[in-house]
Amino acid sequence: MIEDIVDLELPVAERLVIRRNRLQNSTPLSTTKSESTEKLPRIAIVTGVHGDELEGQYVCALIAQKVQAEFARLRGIVDIYPAINPLGIDAIERSIPYLELDMNRYFAGEQERNDSYIAHMTDSVTESLAGADLVVDIHASNIYLREIPQIRMDRNTAERLLPLARLMNVDFVWIHEAITVLKSTLAHTLNSRNTPTLVVEMGVGMRITPVYCHELVQGIFRVMTHLGIWDDPDPSPVKVPIECKEGEVSYINSPAAGLFLPAVEHWIGVAQGELLGRIVQPLTGEVVSEIRSPGAGTVFTLREYPVVMEGSLLARVFTAAPELTK
């Protein structure tokens, strides 16, 4: 059933609509409980808060296809929200077009609103998600960085979220410190309202990485089985993710401006001092800098967009697992 979660008038012959597809099977898993008294378990797949992130679009399509193809296995509700920022997706803009505001900084209900239609959208989305057994908010990095499939959480939520994250078939779970500006994200708002929400980061902006999408879909069905939403007596095994804490990540920021040409593959083990890439100046051809790994570890974030300035992030290296290679 396709429902409009938000329906706002736009100035010229159009409406701004945020849609969800609710796939629901009311047949209870246990025959001893009455259907009418049992609250159906619910998972929500959310993506497109940032209009330039497309990996989640394909994940939504794959989930909708599989649930409908094997509908008899469904034991609860799967809600699919592919486009929280529909105008941004259409305009290939990360932010909300026109006001140029990052929608994922406007989910905290208590703050001053820059514009009330954004508050209306974020509040309506939050209300419709609150109470789900699990929300998966799928992000695709940005156009600058390529990320290995990973789940990020702040350490205050780790106790509750880690057991679910371990089922998601991702390579990496990053447990970071609580950050003030992230208090107004969709995930923080839902987690603080007691609705468990996992943030997935994978791939790169404006592109689809099919292998990552298929892996994540496998993990989502595994967690649905765990939550009693999907009937699979023999679920396929999932990857055991590397769990990483803040102190185990080295950030490599560019020391110079130019074109960044990587010398390593993404998600590969590197030795201390190993060449990660070069910065070249196109006007002269000069190699202005050679970028080397500050320690042994695994490159889990790698610069995708070639133009850099001093400070641009080039790579993140997880330094607690030196030997991993793909």
Binding site: R94, S95, E100, Y144, V181, Y251, N253, V307, M309, E310, G311, S312, L313
Partner: peptide, 22 residues
């Protein structure tokens, strides 16, 4: 221009961080 960040949301800044943090 390069990354669409807002300098006036980057304070107190970080001299080893991203460009606008610097």
């Amino acid at each position: 221009p390069l990354d669409h960040t807002d300098i006036n949301r980057m304070f107190p800044g970080y001299s080893k961080g991203e460009t606008t943090q610097r």
